[in-house]
Every structure is written in structure tokens, then in C-alpha cells.
Design a protein around this nucleic acid. Structure first.
Length: 268
DNA sequence: CTGCGGTCCTGAAGGC
DNA sequence: TGCCTTCAGGACCGCA
């Protein structure tokens, strides 16, 4: 579920609420959801909240961090004491010193929280980070022209470009008028320029709209509110609807076991 | 190197 | 009503 814009929205929601707080108690309701020792993060102060691709990184004292990977259904909520509510999908609760709580929910149990040493974090495990100074047309071109994969598969390869999942890959390729099945190295210079602009534009807009909350409404902001970018989708989950640009029917095609949504007339 | 299918889980939706 | 299949935002693994 959460891709870059959703994780970034969660990061922004947390950073203005939890900095300087200490974690005073940790309740693990699902063992496999919490990797590492709870003891190591007790009484540690939260000093920053960062993000790399789809990975959320809560920085603590003593060179430690608590990483969160949301996979498909993970959710982080921030609750004041009096609003506290867990549900049947609550896997971990972090209690902060002022009585507030960070709740990690995950219906499908794919996601996890992990205690890790900050200096062991391998930035090179992740590809170019969009919306940073490293994400330039030149760097995107370098990655694109050296790959024989279909462009959509490449966009979702976290080791090449970090943070893009199925939704934003489909939407970016539609906006750039590129066929998701086109082999990356066959893209023209103009197409790569266009793709660069569409990725940047769509991710920025999605962050402004606080991410995308889909039909099962699993993604929420930390306040519990829904995101709003799903109202801007032009192809994702629009099978059979008319293309916004040319009016022909939006197709759903299988690609690497996943659904790819596109317009066969506009995306060549 | 690549693609493909299976795997970790739970639940919703649709067909019959 | 109930049973069955398919699908779901991610990522890893083994295999060809």
C-alpha cells in the first residue's frame, strides 16, 4: 500500500508530534511484526523521523533507529491518550512519555518494525530517491538506458528508483504517454524527459493531497484521516472507463503478476 | 542478468 | 445462505 507519498505523509505527521519524546513502553501483539529487542529502544528519545523510499526511519538516541516497512496494508496512527483505540489488526503499540501512543496496524501481517543500528544502514540498497537533488533527468536517463526490463517493472525496482509502487508507476507512465511494456533502453530522450516530469509532478501532487486511500481504506494519515490523491487517478483501477485524453477504454493488463492499467491508444 | 511463480497473510467481492 | 475463486498498494526466494 503505502508508496513514497503515503510514507512521506506519515513521516510529516509524526515529525511534528513525537520529536523529543521518549518511548516508555512497547506492547507487541504480533511477534513477527517486531524484529529486534524491545529493551534496546526503551527510554530512548526520538530525535528525528526520516524516509528512504518506502521505508520509514524513526531515529533514536545511541545510534539506533526503528524502521517501519508498511508492505501492503501497514498503517501508523498517532493517538492522544484519551483517543486511544486499537483494533484487531493492531500489531505493535509504542507508548510515549506524555501518554500518547504510536500504533502499528497491519491486516495482512506482511509489514514489520525493526530495531537497527543507524550506522549499519546501507543507503546503496536503495535506488535514486525521487524529489531530492539526486533525482535528475541525467540520473534517470542513466538508469533507464541501461535496463532491458519493461519500463514499468524498472520504475518499481526499489534498487533502481526508490519509493514508486504500482499506483504511481501506472499514473506516471500514463501522464508521460509511455507504454508500460516498452523496454526501458528503447525509450527516447524525449520520453525520458517526459517521464522525469510526470514522476516528479505526480509524487509532489500526491504528497500535497496526503497520499492515496484506496477502497479498503487501509492507508490513513497518522491522524486517522484519509488521503485524497485517489480522486486524481487517471488510469489506476479505471478498467473499462474512458481515457481522460482520448476516450478509448482503459485496459487492465498483467505484468509480473501485478495489474497494469493503461490506455493502449495514448501510451505507445 | 531476466522473468516467472510461489510465498508470507487476511478479507472483500463476485459467480454459481 | 454458502462455497469457491480471484484479487489486493510489496518484496523475497528459488528456478529456468
Amino acid at each position: 500500500m503505502p508508496e513514497l507519498p503515503e510514507v512521506e505523509t506519515i513521516r510529516l505527521g509524526l515529525i511534528k508530534r513525537i520529536l523529543g519524546q521518549k518511548i516508555v513502553r512497547v506492547q507487541v501483539l504480533e511477534k513477527k511484526a517486531f524484529i529486534g529487542s524491545v529493551k534496546n529502544i526503551l527510554n530512548q528519545e526520538i530525535i528525528n523521523v526520516e524516509r528512504r523510499g518506502k521505508l520509514l526511519r524513526i531515529f533514536l538516541d545511541h545510534d539506533l533507529e526503528l524502521q517501519v516497512h508498511f508492505k501492503l496494508n501497514g498503517q501508523i496512527l498517532y493517538q492522544e491518550e484519551d483517543l486511544f483505540k486499537k483494533n484487531k489488526y493492531t500489531r505493535v503499540i509504542l507508548f510515549l512519555e506524555d501518554g500518547s501512543r504510536i500504533i502499528f496496524n497491519d491486516m495482512r501481517k506482511f509489514g514489520w518494525m525493526k530495531v537497527a543500528k543507524r550506522d549499519l544502514f546501507k543507503d546503496s540498497d536503495y535506488g535514486i530517491e525521487p524529489l531530492t537533488k539526486y533525482f535528475t533527468v541525467k540520473n534517470l536517463r542513466k538508469v533507464v538506458i541501461s535496463s532491458t526490463k519493461p519500463i514499468k517493472t524498472l520504475l518499481m525496482d526499489q534498487k533502481k528508483i526508490a519509493g514508486i509502487g504500482n499506483i504511481y508507476a501506472c499514473e506516471s507512465l500514463f501522464q508521460a504517454r509511455i507504454n508500460p511494456f516498452k523496454i526501458a533502453k528503447k525509450l527516447t530522450t524525449n520520453e525520458i524527459d517526459s517521464l522525469y516530469k510526470s514522476i516528479t509532478n505526480i509524487l509532489q501532487c500526491a504528497i500535497v493531497k496526503k497520499g492515496s486511500s484506496m477502497r479498503d481504506e487501509m492507508y490513513r494519515q497518522v491522524t486517522g484521516e484519509l488521503g485524497e490523491y485517489q480522486t486524481q487517478f487517471l488510469v489506476y483501477e479505471k478498467e473499462g472507463e474512458k481515457c481522460f485524453r482520448c476516450g478509448s477504454s482503459i485496459k487492465r493488463l498483467k505484468q509480473g503478476g501485478r495489474s497494469t492499467y493503461c490506455c493502449k491508444e495514448c501510451q505507445k
